[in-house]
């Protein structure tokens, strides 16, 4: 099974029908394991129980960026390889990515309230995620602004790629603009500074949320393919009526 085989939407639909139940089951099991481990994790000596918010905040923040990466790949697929499923993948990913980004923002803000004393602090990392959220919403607005899906796909692909190139620049400028947040602690030179009792539940939750994204994404892609079939059949019906 290669990428070319998947170019046939019917074959793609058959494949998703076969693997979706397994993916959903695996996601559910991993999520339960991750939640149990998160509940069992010890309290942080500084932050107390609020450190438990990390187990959903960090996976969501990681997915917020990962989904944009997936959409950029799909955008390349649309513009360069003209893969027929690429724009379906890009369109289906946008709302899911926006939802994860929203969760990252809200959980971050709920974490910040007891730690910093305010719900919102204009610090570098929160602000970059907020800009990412705005870009997701803009992308969804672009998809919704054009009726013809293939024309919308090309416009959205260009915007996605420009966004992917711009995100590091935005991140850098926002960092320069202000720094208050604690420095990155998981992926850092010289190994993670996080204790194992936190790291393992965090990794399990990260994998579980990634699986959740894959499951939701495949299901949303299936919906999008069906939506396009409905659309083309409706067009056929309309042209037959007028003929």
């Amino acid at each position: 099974m290669t990428l070319i085989d998947l170019a046939n939407p019917t074959r793609f639909l058959q494949l998703t029908a076969r693997i979706l139940p397994w993916l959903a089951a695996a996601t559910a099991i991993l999520l339960l394991v991750g939640l149990y481990q998160a509940a069992m994790a010890p309290d942080d000596y500084q932050q107390g129980a609020t450190v438990k918010i990390m187990f959903i905040h960090v996976p969501n923040a990681w997915l917020a960026m990962f989904v944009w990466g997936v959409m950029s790949l799909a955008a390349l697929g649309t513009l360069v390889w003209r893969h027929p499923l690429a724009d379906v993948a890009a369109k289906a990913a946008a709302p899911i990515g926006a939802a994860f980004t929203f969760l990252a923002l809200v959980t971050g803000s709920l974490w910040g309230r007891p730690m910093w004393g305010t719900y919102w602090e204009w610090d570098a990392r929160l602000t970059s995620v907020l800009i990412l959220f705005l870009m997701y919403l803009g992308l969804i607005a672009l998809w919704r602004a054009v009726e013809d899906p293939s024309r919308a796909a090309r416009a959205a692909a260009v915007l996605t790629l420009v966004g992917a190139l711009n995100l590091p620049i935005i991140k850098f400028s926002v960092d320069w603009w202000n720094t208050l947040h604690q420095p990155a602690s998981v992926l850092r030179m010289g190994g993670p500074s996080l204790d194992r009792s936190f790291l393992i539940p965090l990794l399990v939750m990260a994998v579980a949320f990634s699986l959740l994204f894959v499951t939701l994404h495949l299901a949303a892609m299936r919906n999008e393919i069906l939506r396009r079939r409905v659309r083309s059949l409706q067009m056929m019906q309309a042209s037959r009526r007028s003929a």
Binding site: L134, L137, G138, A141, R144, A145, V146, E147
Partner: peptide
């Protein structure tokens, strides 16, 4: 609806 743009104002 799609193509409307009322919600773009909020954005």
């Amino acid at each position: 609806r799609v193509g409307g743009g009322a919600l773009i104002g909020v954005l």
